[in-house]
Amino acid sequence: MPKIQTNGLGLWYGGFHALKNVNAGFEANKITAIIGPSGCGKSTLLRVFNRMNDLIEGVRIEGDVLIDGSNIFDMRTDLVTLREKVGMVFQRPNPFPLSIYENIVFGVRVHNGRVKRDKLDEAVEQSLKSVLLWDELKDRLDKPALRLSLEQKQRLCIARLIAVRPDVLLMDEPCSTLDPQATARIEELMRELKASYTIIIVTHNMQQAARVSDDTGFMLLGELIEFGRTEAIFTAPRDKRTEDYITGRYG
């Protein structure tokens, strides 16, 4: 059974039909890329999975999204628990204007209330190690996170998320502000992380999707046109529109 399954998922922003009948299964311990031109609904789809669209007024959703078999739109779903399980990395690295340490322990504190200092230290060390920042930053954990480089900031944001111990990492164009070297290193990190997480990445960058993902979905105007193994999508797309997009005939 896939980790995340959508059944007939539709979404409206007021009168705008942003997602149309999306049916897809996202496997655990794999990286699934969602590609498509701007405004095709790929970020919207990503934001369905941790219900960030709830923040926007006038959003209406139909269909089901099952995570581990339970519907996240169920009245009993607790948003806090859902977001503890399904975390998000944003397009722009967005650490809080706090120290490196405080950034990482924020989520830990939110979910566990008062936590002993040594537990926090441990969480900071583990999460920084898992994003390969520990050696660089261990001597300046009390320094403001905003002074880090863009790449370090984005890694820190991933570490902040990992500290909450989610199952699913949603990444919304996580490399779009990074240079090619930094992008390559973040992609490397994603490959390491997929052993422990279900990763869904939205990207503009087809090469990136081809490089890192196991499965790929191509979206156009709110529809999931094609979904399958990445090699299949890129080498033998079944749909003409997918082929047009990956061969560069859309913007």
Partner: peptide
């Protein structure tokens, strides 16, 4: 706004 968005996405409640 992004600060609020991140905080909520980490599972913090609105009041937190």
């Amino acid at each position: 706004y992004t600060f609020r968005e991140v905080s909520l996405s980490l599972g913090a409640s609105k009041w937190q």
